[in-house]
Amino acid sequence: MLKINNLHASIEGKEILKGISLEVKPGEVHAIMGPNGSGKSTLASVLAGRDLFDVTEGTVEFLDQDLLDMAPEDRARSGLFLGFQYPVEIPGVSMVNFMKTAVNEHRKHNNLDPLSASDFLKLMREKKEVVDITSNLTNRSVNEGFSGGEKKRNEIFQMAMLDPKMAILDETDSGLDIDALKIVAHGVNKLRTKENATIIITHYQRLLEYIVPDFVHILYKGKIVKSSGKELALELEEKGYDWIKEQ
């Protein structure tokens, strides 16, 4: 479903991603770990189409399309979702209005009619339960004044609403208390199917106790230096990154 091949990307002439290759198949969960500044968020941003970064080499295929050739909104509509590490606040724009626009753009892409107001509200109610989000939050402006944890939950709520084929969750666990972590993990698991796939970016193996990955990759200085099964996360937790640096 997603095939990244020798991806290089830089910002202001400085190379951040130095040849990343990764293949994700339907139904799989991949975890990406790595020290601060290793390029995890950059990888997520490049895949989502943020053009702050220049792709200098490599290819990305997503559902048999050339991902790098698509506008960010088309990538989203085709089923690529990014849960942001730092979700941005959009004052004045209500969550309801925002999500309604987003959902209907997705529907338009799939040649479906826009949802009626009542169907939309029904969908919201349903999906709010998945992440145990209060109606209070959806009545407010997008992320405005949300606590760190609320913002992360709101990302998962949006993911539930948009039902993506491929979700990249960038440190969705940081800033969450243990209860919220369980709720978020539960939400992700509930949305997991044989057809969709997830990439989880995290620093903590704790999340991976709740969302069990099929593969764990370690990103270091813009390269994937190690890939293995879920046990790699435990090993990393024990030994720290020095162990990687030595290799």
Partner: peptide, 18 residues
């Protein structure tokens, strides 16, 4: 803010409109 909207499938024009 615009990119956040784009990532949810909303193009730049509509994002600015919102």
């Amino acid at each position: 803010q615009i990119f956040y909207c784009n990532q949810r499938g909303i193009d730049t024009e509509n994002a600015i409109g919102l």
